[in-house]
Design a protein around this nucleic acid. Structure first.
Lengths: 192, 192
DNA sequence: GGCCTTAGGTGATCTACATCACATTCTGCA
DNA sequence: TGCAGAATGTGATGTAGATCACCTAAGGCC
């Protein structure tokens, strides 16, 4: 499947769009290719776009005190990512996005999303549904943070996204779990 | 302001509805009164509704191992709450909602929300925007959890919601911050 | 008003995890 | 192919916060 087909099947799961409508929608997306390690959004940038991942893996992260990195989201194919706070409030990026592997993405501007939502009711429906998913995932993660210890969260992550284990270096998994890489290393070496 | 006016001014900030449309929308809401301590959603319940707070204060919480309570959200006037996971996925409640003080709420069923979103584009717009807010708040809280220690999170909470300090017992604030009541007590007694 | 339940404070102790320090691979690339 | 930097493992030690135990104060309510 190419990028257009992947986006189409992703959106049609939720919204009813005819071909003409989808083509119109799609015409607002810009395909982009990135190399492993490349930055897409850096702290302090103006943020005008959000990104739909076609292939590869991105990470959205926050860096505290110029030292510690916390990963908010690994963005896998069919996931969306951006610094949504900055995007919606027209502020500078506090969250950065870069590529864990080579990646193919579709890029949509905030203005175009809002325009499309106004023009096509079903597009607004799709984005409501999508944000909903994100909200529920975020709440679930918050609960998991409060409720579980690191080991349980590590196992939960691997159950949820088994691909991550091979794709993503361990220190990034630690940054997602919010523990030091040393602690994570000890954890899964102890449990043989 | 009465319940209808409060909801109206809340929604009109985001969506453009004429009086007729708003009256139609409002006709799907059911006003309810609750007493301090009363449960609105209990673990295991079928969840069919979400709730808009007109006055008073609710909490949405999760209880782990029948012992520890974690508060996901304090719901103040003009906030919405429910067990959204259960509501959208038609599963039983894992999150409970009850009243910290006497409360007046407006109750909307999931079916009616979806129907209204289908019928009135601006209503869908409103709910997209609302979920968005929730998503951003939840992400921010997640980051704060990873990044800050308890004391910083406590101060952040009081800055964000100064009313809570008087309204809400301290052990509930501890349950929101995800620390023991003892630790919280020591924290703010030490800082004189 | 008295009683019981709930809220809150405080000391002693325990523990998960951070931090620092250093050794050991692995990997990309000149 | 060899070398620098990144990723990972592992010990020693420090610390925030949990847990347990107990005490006091403050509400509801008969």
């Amino acid at each position: 499947m190419n990028a257009k087909e992947i986006l189409k099947s992703h959106i049609l799961k939720t919204a009813q769009l005819n071909d003409e409508q989808f083509d119109y929608l799609f015409s607002h997306f810009k395909p982009l290719l990135f190399k492993k390690g490349q930055a897409i959004i850096s702290e302090g940038d103006k943020v005008e776009h959000e990104y739909f991942v076609v292939s590869g893996c991105l990470k959205a992260f926050f860096i505290n005190d110029e030292i510690k990195m916390y990963i908010l989201q690994f963005a896998m194919p069919t996931w969306w990512t951006s610094d949504y706070g900055a995007l919606y409030n027209h502020t500078r990026a506090t969250i950065s996005v870069d590529c864990i592997s080579d990646a193919e993405v579709l890029c949509l501007s905030n203005d175009d999303r809002e325009k499309l939502c106004r023009e096509i009711h079903q597009v607004e429906h799709f984005f409501r549904w999508r944000t909903n998913r994100g909200y529920l995932a975020s709440q679930k993660r918050l609960l998991s943070f409060m409720n579980n210890d690191t080991k349980a969260r590590y196992e939960e992550l691997l159950t949820l996204y088994p691909q991550l284990y091979n794709l993503v270096p361990k220190h990034l998994i630690a940054a997602y779990l919010g523990v030091s890489r040393e602690t994570l290393s000890r954890l899964y070496n102890a449990q043989k």
